[in-house]
């Protein structure tokens, strides 16, 4: 099936699932209306809970459902849609407080019945989820602690939300409507169990061993991993995986990293990781022989998915990692298609893989345009931040036929996408990878 058709199917399924509870509650016996604002408020509460439930499915790493979009985009969507769920969950009680001020007094008096307490605590958990996710770095919350808290808060918000709906019983008094909500809660629990228990169990059976730790320019490290007692896995150049080091796969201390090795060679697999905080700052302390666990591969950021007579790559900083995987693979395959790389970095001294890129130019038809924001005094190449005029100068005449791959910080991706589109490259030819998720 065409990727667009598959994507449309999953989007329609998402819309159907997220709306279904509202429709179903209107079927069969139902209470009489209690005024527009009262019922509107309840509908928002149901919608918020349905959205929360779908978030569990979005993040359950179903490879088939996420493949047409790229799992990075699914996580990005999860982040945005969750804001919508939070807005609904906030308006729901506010409308009720406005219409029935007595309710607010009951909360302040501390005489709230249990079925309303569940709703209140559910909202508090959701609010904590929002704050800790949107401002994790500003609040200096460690990524590993955030991961654990995120799962616990999400489960609390959803399960208490469902308990609130079932406890109140308005619109869900019939047996099958109660079971609709309990079924939703069970589906979410199943999705959480799949990611947190079933997947780690599968990983335990397929351990990896650190074979080499290589220091690269620009505070980056390449970890080379070798499969231990199994054949590893096949991946497409440019894909990424979740990597667990120095802890059990059950500990939720996994981190997504791009694979930087060639997909043409079986067995060993490399990740290139920049010291950017938390876990990554200590990556250089990893020793040869340590055990690792890899959940992957994921992602659609790959030349093997988008065939073209030539490619344009845009890398910002360590965003070079998946692009190195593609360049190395093309070199190993003896591919002679024309390749152009725009590579933005701060300084020449810290530009990761610059020596290997020069070597690769002898094996593949590669042109590299370095863009330095802090160039040395004698620098004659492009400088400053990546911008449209740099693309205008560097892009070849056959640009419209090429497929473009952009990887780097999110603001750089936005600038590059816009500039490439203005330079005549169709939006369907522009692919990007988001790695700055939380």
């Amino acid at each position: 099936m065409h990727p667009y058709l598959r994507a449309t199917f999953w989007i329609l399924l998402y819309l159907l699932l997220v709306q279904a509870p509202l429709f179903v509650l209107l079927l069969g016996p139902k209470p009489a209306g209690d005024g527009f604002w009262f019922d509107f408020s309840l509908a928002l509460g149901f919608a918020a809970t349905a959205m929360m439930a779908i978030m569990f499915l979005l993040t359950a790493r179903f490879q088939r459902a996420t493949a047409p979009f790229g799992i990075d985009l699914v996580y990005y969507f999860h982040r945005l849609a969750a804001i919508g769920a939070f807005v609904f969950a906030t308006i729901h009680p506010l409308v009720l407080f406005y219409k029935e001020p007595g309710l607010l007094r009951v909360i302040l008096d501390g005489t709230l019945p249990l079925h309303l307490w569940t709703g209140l605590v559910s909202w508090v958990a959701l609010a904590a989820l929002m704050v800790s996710s949107l401002w994790r770095k500003s609040l200096h919350i460690h990524y590993d602690a955030w991961r654990v808290a995120h799962v616990l808060l999400a489960l609390t918000a959803l399960l208490l939300g469902v308990a609130h709906i079932v406890g109140v019983g308005h619109y869900s008094a019939t047996f099958w409507k109660t079971w609709l909500w309990l079924g939703i809660a069970l589906s979410c629990l199943t999705a959480a169990v799949r990611v947190r228990l079933v997947k780690p169990l599968q990983l335990l059976r397929r351990p990896w061993r650190v074979a080499r730790v290589i220091e690269e320019r620009g505070s980056s490290w390449t970890l080379v991993l070798r499969p231990e007692g199994h054949g590893g896995f096949r991946y497409l150049p440019g894909q990424f995986a979740w990597l667990t080091l120095r802890s059990s796969p059950f500990a939720m201390r996994e981190h997504p990293f791009s694979i930087s090795s060639s997909a043409a060679t079986a067995g060993e697999i490399s990740f290139t990781i920049k010291e950017l905080g938390d876990f990554t700052n200590r990556i250089g302390e990893i020793r040869v022989g340590e055990t690792a666990w890899i959940d992957g591969p994921y992602g659609t950021f790959s030349i093997d998915i988008s065939q073209a007579p030539g490619y344009v790559f845009v890398a910002g900083g360590v965003g070079i990692a998946p692009i190195m995987s593609m360049l190395r693979t093309l070199a190993d395959r003896g591919d002679r298609r024309p390749l152009l790389l725009f590579y933005a970095y701060h300084t020449w001294e810290r530009t990761t893989f610059r020596e290997e890129l020069e070597e690769l130019r002898e094996r593949i038809d590669l042109t590299v345009v370095y863009v330095l924001s802090e160039p040395p005094a004698d620098w004659e190449g492009e400088q400053g931040l990546l911008r449209e005029e740099i693309f205008a100068r560097g892009l070849p005449a056959d640009r419209a036929a090429r497929e473009c791959f952009i990887c780097g910080p999110t603001p750089m991706i936005a600038v590059a996408e816009k500039a490439l589109a203005r330079q005549g490259i169709a939006l369907t030819h522009i692919h990007s990878e988001i790695f700055d998720l939380v």
């Binding site: 997220v18 709306q19 509202l22 209690d34 019922d39 928002l44 919508g84 609904f88 990007s432 988001i434």
Partner: peptide, 30 residues
């Protein structure tokens, strides 16, 4: 483009749910 696509889809699906909530209330309170 991908980011914009995700943003539009999130906004559209949220607005759709908002509209459905209004319809829900209108059906119950004609």
């Amino acid at each position: 483009m991908r980011l914009r696509f995700a943003q539009l889809l999130a906004l559209a699906s949220t607005l759709l749910l908002l509209l459905l909530s209004v319809i829900f209330a209108l059906v119950q309170n004609p």
